[in-house]
Amino acid sequence: MGNWALRAENLSKDFRLHLQGGVRIPVLADVSLTVEPGECVALAGPSGAGKSTLMRCLYGNYGAGAGRILIRHGDAVVDLATADPRLVRAIRRDTLGYVSQFLRVIPRIGAVDIVAEPLMARGVARDAATARARDLLLRLNLPERLHNLPPATFSGGEQQRINLARGFAADYPVLLLDEPTASLDAANRQVVIGLIEEAKARGAALIGIFHDTEVRDRIADRLFDVAPIQDAA
């Protein structure tokens, strides 16, 4: 105890759909989860149980309905659920990374710049950030001729590898991974397993959703069950 990197306490989340007559959909109730540095926790549970919702809450993308999301940010412990937007941005820059399933492409921005951007946001010089980005893209088998192109027309697997390179470029102390290997072939799955093992070895805390059980068994230290809410009640 006491050494955790991220700790969710009694987290609840429901969605109120004003356009559907104000119907309220409860998704998470009273979820508590603690992750230590160097540990990888895999979220388990059937489709629709709220695994992705939990991940989005942990990233601050969804607001928490109730409860706290404590994260060790530098020397401080911060509650992400109530943090000011500027503080959430600082946490995302320095402490908390998120690899979603889909890449959000920006017109005219090349793959290498998408990957280098989180490093440059921390003040890393362009040359150093770009070199690190190219290394990661090559490691993920994205050929050099694609590095400078905007990935809007790339395949799903290529876009996912750019997303992964971006997520692993900045050595976040806490990293959230939503189906990081969903559209990858076997060779690239092995690369991702290697990246995750290295992140654990340097002390990163990881939380992931892995439908690929082979990947999950290789890298997860334990499973955390996310139960559909009617079962939990």
């Binding site: 989005r56 993308n61 607001g63 937007p85 959430v88």
Partner: peptide
């Protein structure tokens, strides 16, 4: 009001 992605992905007001 709030963080851009939170307001757009988890909007609260009707």
């Amino acid at each position: 009001e709030g963080l851009t992605d939170r307001v757009l992905d988890d909007p609260q007001h009707a």
